[in-house]
Design a protein around this nucleic acid. Structure first.
Lengths: 255, 255
DNA sequence: TCTTTCATTCCGAAAAATGATAATATCATG
DNA sequence: CATGATATTATCATTTTTCGGAATGAAAGA
C-alpha cells in the first residue's frame, strides 16, 4: 500500500502546473505545459483556465503564454514571511542581532520593492526602523541590490532602466551605469552594503538566504547608524550574518 | 451576466486554507481553520490532510497545529523569483505613476470589456480604484475607446450598435452617433480621455501600448479625481504616458 | 475525576474532474 | 494571401472525488 507517494488528484495537477510555470524562465504556452506534464490538451486548458480565473496564473501581456499570477505572488510573499516568523527562526534572528549588537531584519522582494517580513531590534529605536510590512526601494537597499545582482545580465539591465532611481540622499546611486557596476560587484562578492543611500546617517549590509538548490529565498540584513559603525567597519558583520543565513536556510526546509 | 468570480470548489478551499495559515502569526489548529473559514470540521480535516500529504502544510513540531510546509515554502521562493524576473512591467508602471503622481493602470480588452491587469496607486485610495481583475465597460473608459478606435470602421460601427451603452453619469456617451464621432477623434489623436463618463468625479486618459508590428497589446491609463486635475489639464499626462508606453512595448515582449 | 472540546473514521449522495471527439481559431510559410 | 499545421475552445458520457452528517475516539481543561 505504498500508493501514498504519487497521487494525481486535481490538487496535484494544479500545483504541478503552478510549479512548472514558476520554474520556467520565460512565459509558457498551454500546449507546452500539457506536454511537459503529460496532460491531455483539453484537460490542460481547463486546469490552466481554473488557475487563471483565480489569479494564480495570468497571461503575459499581449500573448497567450502564461506566467505566475498576482494572487500567487501575494500568497508567496506571505508564505515566505510566515516561514521566517516561526519561533526557531526568529530565535536565529535574535541571536545574530544580539551577537552583532544591531538591528537585524529579513526582507524579500515583491513588486519591485523590498518588503521586510521580520526584524529584531536590539535596543532603543536608533537607526532605521524596518518594521515588518514596510517597503523600501530596490536601488538603495542592500536586499534590493542582492536580488538584482542575481538576475541574468540582460534582465538586470532592463530592470535598472525601468526603475525610478529616486534620489533620497546625496550618496544614492541614481545613474543606471553606476548601479550596474555596483550590482556586478555585489554579484561577485555575494553580499551587499549600503552607504547612507536611503536614509541619511544609516548604513547597512545584507547577505542572501538561499534554498538548498541555491535559489534566493530572502535576505538577512542589518541597519546601523553611521555614528556607531562606519561604512567600512560594516564588513565585520558579514561573517556572522552569513553564518546565521546558512542556519536559516538549513532550518527553513525542516521542522 | 453574473460571472461567478467567487466560486468555492476544492481548489478555492485549498488555497483559502493555505492563505489563512500563512496569514496567521502563530500555528493554527484544524478546528480554528474550520471556524475561520466556516468549514464543517470533518471537511476541514480532510482538506488539511490533503495539503499535509503534499507537504504544503505541516504540523508545528510536536503539536497538532499547522504551519506552512516545506513544499509551499520552496514553491513560494520560486514564484517570487519568477515574478521578479518578469516584473519590469510593474516597475515601469510604478515609475510613471510616481512621475505623474496619480494612479496608473494597465488594461486590456477581453470579451468586450476592459479588464485591468495591473495598477499602481500612488497614495491613499482617492478616486477610482481599478483593482487588477476588475472589469469596466468599453464605451465610457479611455482604454475601451482606444480599443474600439483601432477596429476597422465597419466592425467598429457594428460593435457600437451591439454594445449596451449604459448611462452611468450624465456625461456618459449613450448614443451611437456621438460615440462613433468620439472614436474617430480618438483614432486620429492616438489617445483617449474620459470626462466623468463612468464614475462621477473621476476623469482619466489612456494611451496604447503597441507591439513592434503596431498591434494593440494593452493600454496604459491614469485615473484622477476631477477635484485635483481638470479634464483639460489631463493633457499634460499624455506625454509621460506615451513615453512609458513605449518603454513597456520595448521591454514587455522580450522575456 | 468529569466535562468539554477537538480529532478522526465511515459512508451514501452529490458534484466535479476527466479526456475522447469535434469544431474553431490562430499561426507559419510557401 | 491561400493553405496546411497547430493550438485553442466546446461538448458530453463516464469515472472519480468530494462533501459533510452522524458517530466515536482522544485529549485537554476545570
Amino acid at each position: 500500500m505504498t500508493k501514498r507517494i504519487q497521487k494525481d488528484g486535481p490538487l496535484d495537477r494544479a500545483f504541478a502546473i503552478v510549479r512548472h510555470v514558476a520554474d520556467q524562465r520565460k512565459a509558457v504556452s498551454a500546449a507546452e505545459i500539457a506536454k511537459a506534464l503529460s496532460l491531455p490538451l483539453p484537460t490542460a486548458h481547463r486546469l490552466i483556465g481554473n488557475l487563471e480565473d483565480r489569479g494564480l496564473l495570468q497571461k503575459a501581456l499581449g500573448t497567450k503564454r502564461y506566467v505566475v499570477g498576482n494572487q500567487l505572488v501575494t500568497l508567496s510573499a506571505t508564505v515566505i514571511g510566515a516561514a521566517f516568523r516561526t519561533a526557531r527562526r526568529h530565535a536565529v534572528l535574535r541571536a545574530v542581532a544580539g551577537e552583532i549588537g544591531e538591528q537585524c531584519e529579513i526582507g524579500v522582494v515583491r513588486d519591485n520593492v523590498v518588503a521586510y517580513v521580520d526584524s529584531v531590534r536590539v535596543s532603543e529605536p536608533q537607526g532605521l526602523q524596518f518594521n515588518p510590512g514596510e517597503a523600501a526601494p530596490l536601488h538603495c537597499t542592500s536586499t534590493g541590490k542582492i536580488y538584482m545582482s542575481r538576475l541574468p545580465e540582460r534582465t538586470r539591465a532592463n530592470l535598472c532602466r525601468a526603475l525610478p532611481l529616486t534620489r533620497y540622499t546625496d550618496t544614492t546611486i541614481v545613474d543606471v551605469h553606476g548601479l550596474m557596476k555596483t550590482l556586478e560587484d555585489t554579484r561577485q562578492k555575494g553580499w551587499a552594503k549600503t552607504n547612507e543611500e536611503y536614509v541619511k546617517g544609516v548604513v547597512g549590509c545584507a547577505v542572501p538566504i538561499l534554498s538548498p538548490d541555491r535559489e534566493l529565498i530572502a535576505c538577512l540584513g542589518v541597519s546601523v547608524p553611521v555614528a556607531r559603525v562606519s561604512f567600512v567597519e560594516l564588513d565585520r558583520f558579514i561573517a556572522p550574518l552569513q553564518k546565521a543565513a546558512a542556519l536559516l536556510s538549513e532550518t527553513i526546509l525542516q521542522d
